[in-house]
Simulated assay, not measured.
Amino acid sequence: MRIVSIGECMVELSGAGADLWRSSFAGDTFNTAWYARAKLPSAMVDYVTCVGSDPISDRMVQFMSSAGIGTEHINRHPTRSVGLYMIELQNGERSFSYWRDQSAARCLADDLDAIERAIQGADYVYLSGITLAILPREKLGDLLSVLSGSNMVFDPNLRPRLWENGDVMRADVMRAAAQATVVLPSFEDEQTHFNDQTPFDTAQRYADAGATEIMVKNGGGDMVVCVNGACETIAVGAPIEPVDTTGAGDSFNGAYLAARLAGQEPHSAARAAHETAARVIQHRGALMDMGNLN
């Protein structure tokens, strides 16, 4: 069993007291890889990105490796380094400041042959809208061509600040979704940027694009899962007051893919993933210690 996740990992700064900041490493696709590895230790989970050749990049790669995440497909850039973001919290909800415009990860699609080698034999190849957004426009089609034929899993993870404009974001997200087998959207984002009225609308749009399995996350609300056109609502119970929502969707995605790879049906995988995300939002930062998840 093998999952390959493609995207950007960054230095994360989160509050540790007045004028104090704690550093770690995180990023949506890496977070998903982390939680997939935590929930299914028997699986191989590899991360594909580009980092620098400097000490902080060395620390990042060592951090990944120490967590049991494969790093052999990570490229090194000779002059760029990794990006950085800072989390600020208010009532458990996060806001971010980013420094990533010149990150090495923006060059992750420069060596497409390396990506093609990395995804060989993978049960799932995972990427997000952020993976697409950080690439130069001319590289997007090339990357999707390399991924064609793989069992691609896609989280739209709509972040308009990373895109030229909303129309470009929506077009490129749907272009990628049309190639995906599994799509893992978040209803709040889809409602905002695609004007979906219900989670069923979101599921139907991605099914119409060609995805055969759509798992619509919905924060604290009921979720919707559709497989081959058959949809069902998944009740999640009373909402939970979060400490920090950072990584909620990513942890859901990782746990969902782990459960599906282990043979669970979509509805039971969704419930297991929701339980994982509910635990993650009770702690600060994107990554919860693996030993506390099982």
Rank of each mutant, 00 (worst) to 15 (best):
E8W: 12
V11C: 08
L13W: 06
A16H: 03
G17L: 09
A18G: 10
D19C: 02
L20I: 06
F25I: 04
D28P: 09
F30D: 06
N31C: 05
T32E: 02
T32A: 09
Y35L: 11
A36W: 00
A38M: 07
L40P: 01
L40K: 05
P41G: 13
V45R: 08
D46W: 15
D46N: 15
D46I: 15
Y47V: 06
V48Y: 13
T49N: 13
C50F: 09
C50W: 07
P55Q: 12
R59V: 12
A67P: 10
G70F: 09
H73P: 10
P78W: 14
R80I: 02
M86W: 06
L89A: 04
Q90E: 06
E93R: 05
S95Q: 04
C107K: 12
C107S: 15
L108M: 10
I115W: 04
E116W: 09
A122H: 03
D123L: 09
Y124A: 13
T131I: 08
L132I: 14
L135K: 14
L135M: 14
P136W: 14
E138W: 10
E138M: 15
K139Q: 15
K139N: 15
L140G: 12
G141R: 07
D142R: 14
V146G: 04
N151M: 03
M152S: 04
F154T: 03
F154R: 04
N157D: 04
L158H: 00
P160W: 10
P160S: 05
G166R: 11
G166D: 10
R170M: 13
A180L: 11
V182M: 11
V182P: 09
L184Q: 09
P185R: 13
E188Q: 04
E188S: 09
E190M: 11
H193G: 08
H193Q: 09
D196Y: 03
T198E: 00
P199M: 01
F200C: 01
D201E: 07
T202Y: 02
Q204E: 04
Y206H: 07
A207W: 14
E213S: 10
M215T: 08
G220R: 03
G220K: 01
G221N: 08
V224G: 01
V224K: 00
V225M: 02
V227T: 11
N228D: 12
N228P: 01
E232N: 03
T233P: 00
A235Q: 14
V236N: 04
V236T: 06
P239E: 00
P239W: 01
T246W: 00
S251N: 05
N253S: 14
Y256I: 12
R260W: 00
G263R: 05
G263V: 02
H267P: 12
A270D: 06
A272D: 14
H274W: 03
A277D: 01
A278Q: 10
V280W: 08
H283T: 14
G285A: 08
M288G: 00
M290V: 12
N294E: 13
